[in-house]
Write a protein that binds this DNA or RNA. Structure first.
Lengths: 231, 231
DNA sequence: AAAAATCTTGAAGGTATAATGAATTTCGCA
DNA sequence: TGCGAAATTCATTATACCTTCAAGATTTTT
């Protein structure tokens, strides 16, 4: 699974690395590990993890320093692990840009819960960003209901957008009439192919360069329709 | 009226409330306190704090319940304070939507550091959007809660402003009725679309050049509304 | 090549949704 | 407790959308 959250663990104790890797992998995360600060910084830059778990007691450089270096360019959530329990250490790390601080020894479940919190944060940040499907000069924002043709926006009705979104989400695939109808109109209208014809035409009118020779919304005669996108 | 970050403290022990209030006020924060869960929920809805500090051991309802109720409509950072140190309690609270968990007794400096972390999160969430939204002759200051039309200030009621602020913060995006209603009125009124119609009209009357041909607040029939800004 | 099936195209009526204006209730404040 | 502003509710008008239908074009079948 390539879209599973990716976690970078930076810790010099190999047992801890192994333990955390086992636990996180079991929960479905992708895990990368580093034993030294420099290595961790490099991996963070190349792999762009979703979360970084960082031990303060590294051999080559101070964890707070690693934290600060990371914050120069990334907002990725950082969870600190440390044997140091002093308030001073916690404040230093948190003010250096860390998002959370756990003192060793820590409970597995608590670590996982705090990872989930960090994940919530990073995904809510991503959620503000737009997820786009592109096809020629078309840009379809599935999240925010915005469709652009070049620079100008195309106004779509609710049903039109629902239909286009379903086509775009399955771009490249042939979708049967019944399949589309049940998804967009609901199972009750599964055999109202007239609806499809009317709406496909409206979409083509609004989106295609030449509606009579569609290049995005293709007809698969006797079967259904298909949406062609870039990439 | 100050724009200092606003923190809501929900705790039943009056000494703790007083202590936290003193410390936070000293650091320049605005502080509101509540001693019971229901009171806290109400204050959270009316005052819209930037951070909520919540004690788990409330007399009238469970802290985890308070957490869950808050998460129905707000993303505001929640820091848990609790005497309970068990892993089970921590996991329950964090999974209910809390962002951090401190066990009593806690260090003042650590609390402040974690408040700063929470503040970073809330401002970076807002920071993704511009704090000053301009649309034609309109200027909407999301931080100072000021709306100007040309040079003169527009007087808006509480609900009107909350609604406009939410639209402006998400300018360019299509927001569904339910989305707007849960954010502005709360999840209980998620299907009272009448409210929206009435308030959209009032906003248009106060903001639009020609309220009958709105250029800022657009209707997306069957879906919701959208605010158009410059750029 | 003719016929049949499928798809496209255009337009119109009915219906759900939105705008409007105003009355009523609630709430905050003195 | 009473006043005024704000929030909610309601009835009416206006609008946009979904649905429906019919005729022309295209593709497939025989």
């Amino acid at each position: 699974m390539s879209n599973a959250p990716h976690i970078l663990v930076i810790d010099d104790e190999s047992q801890i690395r192994r333990a955390i890797r086992t636990i996180l992998t079991e929960k479905g995360f992708r895990v990368t590990t580093a034993s030294r600060g420099e290595e961790g910084l490099t991996l963070a830059a190349t792999n762009e993890p979703d979360i970084i778990i960082l031990d303060l007691g590294l051999p080559d450089m101070d964890g707070v320093e690693v934290c600060a270096r990371l914050r120069e360019w990334t907002q990725c959530p950082i969870i600190i692990l440390s044997v140091r329990d002093s308030e001073h250490d916690k404040v230093a790390a948190l003010d250096a840009g860390a998002d959370d601080y756990l003192t060793k020894p820590f409970g597995i479940e608590e670590l996982l819960a705090r990872v989930r919190v960090a994940l919530r944060h990073s995904t809510s940040r991503q959620g503000a960003q737009t997820k786009l499907v592109k096809a020629g000069s078309l840009t379809i924002d599935l999240v925010w209901h915005i469709v652009k043709r070049g620079e100008e926006e195309v106004k779509l009705t609710g049903t039109e957008h629902k239909l286009l979104a379903y086509l775009a989400a399955n771009h490249g695939r042939v979708l049967t009439h019944q399949n589309i109808l049940t998804q967009v109109w609901g199972p009750a209208d599964a055999n109202h192919t007239e609806y499809l014809r009317v709406y496909m035409r409206q979409l083509r009118k609004k989106l295609e360069v030449d509606p009579e020779r569609p290049q995005y919304i293709l007809t698969e005669p006797g079967i259904g329709y298909r949406f062609i996108s870039d990439g």
